[in-house]
Design a protein around this nucleic acid. Structure first.
Length: 455
RNA sequence: GGCGAGUUGGCGGAGUGGUGACGCAGCGGAUUGCAAAUCCGUGUACACGAGUUCGAUUCUCGUACUCGCCUCCA
């Protein structure tokens, strides 16, 4: 079996993937808080871990991989959105989840095997919170339950932080009910206007971090293989998740490998609303940038490195995909994925290396197609954008003009033939002169009106 | 202030202790009436300074710069 190695944040090493249950892989990726459209930065982990999912399915078999991505549908941002819009929380979360799946699907992201929602796992969170209290790792105070960071000597081991250093330099407002500045909330009280559930500590709602610990355990049990997300989640979210699970279970096996993708920038600058370079996946799709092209851009840089989203990168991606699509028209994919592609992906998900490998397969369209499919490219479902424009009534005119040009060339009337040639170019008609005569096809910017003056 | 990541040719972007990936652009050639398309060829790149080594872009230390996180954030 292909050996897969992945970089683990905790150990800072590339570790061979050795599944807890031999032959079966479990992967948990932190999903969105559903209160608004996903932006392009949100899309990176989705596409990155989708690609890993595809690799795992290829190597271990489709039925032997379980990919879980949660929806955080209880959160103060959602509450705020509901309050300001007057809409119900469930309206907002349902709509946003639908958007999310549509937008991610447009980039060829497969849906996970399981997509648990926080609101459907409240009992599991309460249970885990009780366990943490029982084991002395958490305490109830004023309707809150807090995790005691000091009770966990390994706290900080994932993100490589020292608790004392953090307190020293931090701008943390210490709530009166906290025993220690770093303690974080497992459960907090809800007022009448806030969603809440009955609990041993009164009506309330869970803190953010507990949901992933509880839901991952519900699906996988105490140990699973890969836990992923953006590196901004490394601290505090994943650190806290790891602490909760470690302290509840008495071992550090929550995830064998922690993976974190790098952040996305736009034209070299941090993406932010104030800079005006903040956009959602839907914005890009509406602008006419195909989801497949977005996917390509997101995979053309190694996942751990920062990724700069640029117009130029988009157009290069589009050009490459168009070329590959042209090369593979009517081709059946090879039965096996080319080893060069598998080898690149198996080495810490080197998608840029895999794309380079695909460039090397342009002489082998069947292999190219098989390899590209492995990366989620060149599917029919994502390919509509690359279809040639409709020729409409212009076909006859184009044929006539080609004939006229051929005549002109025979007559050595080069002024005429060159005028037609240039006119074709301007109108988006691509003419290729071959030994058997001229063939033509339409460019994406085909404009039949521009042919009128040539006749 | 603390922690982490990054710095590769015109651009993008892999990788490696010893023969300079790959793509785009550029340049030269073939082809063409001229082009387009195609094909062939083409680049003394690894932030800087020390160190280790027979040899470093690749390892170590330091410096600079960029970015991220430390507060909701993928």
């Amino acid at each position: 079996m292909t050996k897969i190695v992945l970089h683990d944040t905790k150990t800072k090493l590339k570790k061979p993937l050795e599944p807890v249950v031999p032959g079966k892989v479990g992967m948990y990726v932190c999903g969105p808080t559903v209160y608004d459209r996903a932006h392009i930065g949100n899309a990176r982990p989705v596409v990155v871990f989708d690609t890993l999912y595809r690799l795992l399915r290829q190597v271990y078999g489709t039925d032997n991989v379980t990919y879980v991505r949660n929806f955080t549908d209880v959160d103060d941002k959602i509450n705020a959105r509901a309050a300001e819009s007057g809409r119900s929380i469930s309206d907002i979360t349902e709509e946003t989840i639908g958007w999310y799946l549509d937008d991610m699907g447009a980039m060829g992201a497969l849906e996970p095997d399981e997509a648990p929602r926080a609101t459907q796992s409240i009992d599991a969170m309460i249970k885990m919170t009780e366990e943490l209290i029982a084991k002395g790792h958490a305490y109830a105070a004023e309707g809150h339950v807090l995790f005691s960071v000091k009770s966990d000597p390994e706290y900080g081991s994932l993100s490589h932080r020292n608790v004392d250093d953090m307190i020293a330099g931090a701008r943390i407002e210490v709530a009166p009910y906290k025993r220690d500045a770093m303690d974080f909330v497992l459960w907090k009280p809800s007022d009448a206007d806030t969603p809440g559930w009955d609990s041993p500590w009164g009506r309330g709602r869970p803190g953010w971090h507990i949901e992933c610990s509880a839901m991952a355990r519900e699906v996988f049990g105490e140990r699973f293989d890969i836990h992923g997300g953006g590196n901004d989640l490394m601290f505090p979210h994943h650190e806290n998740e790891a602490a909760q699970s470690r302290c509840a279970h008495g071992h550090d096996g929550m995830a064998s490998i922690w993976m974190h993708n790098g952040m996305l920038q736009v034209e070299g600058a941090k993406m932010s609303k104030s800079l005006g370079n903040f956009f959602t996946v839907k914005d890009l799709l509406d602008k006419g940038i195909p989801g497949e092209v977005i996917r390509f851009v997101l995979l053309s840089t190694h996942y751990r490195a920062p990724l700069d989203w640029t117009e130029r990168g988009v157009s290069e991606a589009e050009k490459t995909l168009r070329k590959w699509r042209t090369l593979t028209v009517g081709i059946e994919p090879a039965a096996t994925v080319p080893p060069s592609v598998i080898a690149a992906l198996s080495d810490d998900l080197n998608t840029a290396g895999a794309i380079a490998a695909l460039h090397g397969l342009t002489g082998d369209p069947a292999g190219l197609l098989a390899g590209a499919s492995m990366l989620g490219f060149l599917s029919d479902a994502l390919g509509e954008w690359a279809d040639a424009p409709e020729v409409g009534d212009a076909g006859a005119m184009i044929e006539a003009l080609i004939a006229a040009r051929t005549e002109a060339r025979k007559a050595k009337d080069f002024a005429r033939s060159d005028a037609i040639r240039d006119g074709f170019a301007a109108a988006g008609v691509i003419v290729k002169d071959t030994a058997d005569g001229a063939t033509w096809e339409l460019a994406p910017d085909f404009d039949p009106a521009k042919l009128e003056g040539l006749v």
